[in-house]
Simulated assay, not measured.
Amino acid sequence: MDKSVRLWDAANGGNGLVRFQPRHGGVLAAVYNKAISVFDVETSTQIYLLQGHSEAVDYICWDPSGAVLVSVSQCLVKIWSMVSGECIQELASPPDQLFYSYVFHPSYSTLLIIGGRKCLELWNMTHNKIMTVSAHEDTISSLAQSLVTRMVASANHDSLVKLWK
């Protein structure tokens, strides 16, 4: 016996994405194809089953407070309330753009930065406004943020990394 608790069997259709809730740590989100299951790790019980994506969920992330969970597929971003378990906001990708990566802005917790094909989409979730910034010559495959320096790094498939202030 390995003393582990199996909350989700990723071998049966999941893609292995798991994230602990920040600040609290007692809640875990796990992706299973088109759905996200949210668990209380102390009691090993499912709190929410978040459904609504029409394609596989590629990425999940908590906002810095742990109050909302963001799920992303190539064509859709969904914002989920951890108070109600409901989708409170969503953003469809523009017709000529797919979503590949994202991160919260290190200084503005309601600004989501989404990496697409050559561009960064800056989504102000409070005002539901989007600003597009030309960023790379290829798909933006990865984004990272630093709370210390307040910088964002973007990387593309050509291995070019750019730093944004």
Rank of each mutant, 00 (worst) to 15 (best):
V70L: 08
S81P: 04
V83A: 11
V72P: 02
M82A: 04
S71R: 10
M82H: 04
S71T: 05
C87P: 05
V83L: 12
S84C: 06
W80Q: 01
V72N: 13
C75I: 08
V77A: 03
S93K: 08
S71E: 11
V77L: 06
P95H: 01
S93Q: 02
L69C: 12
L76R: 08
L76C: 05
K78Y: 02
I79V: 15
Q97S: 15
Q74Y: 13
I79W: 07
G85K: 00
I79A: 04
L98S: 07
K78M: 15
V72Q: 15
C75H: 10
I79H: 09
L76A: 02
C87F: 06
D96E: 12
L98V: 06
E90R: 11
P95N: 03
K78V: 07
S73G: 04
G85Y: 10
G85I: 07
Q74F: 15
P94Q: 12
D96C: 14
Q89P: 01
Q74R: 15
C87G: 01
Q89E: 06
L98I: 15
Q89L: 11
W80N: 03
A92W: 02
Q89M: 09
G85E: 00
S93Y: 03
I88E: 08
Q74V: 13
Q74E: 14
V70H: 00
S84N: 07
E86R: 14
S71H: 05
D96M: 10
M82E: 03
V77Q: 01
C75F: 11
S73K: 02
V83N: 04
S81H: 03
A92Y: 11
V70F: 06
L98E: 10
P95I: 05
S73T: 06
Q74C: 10
M82I: 07
D96T: 12
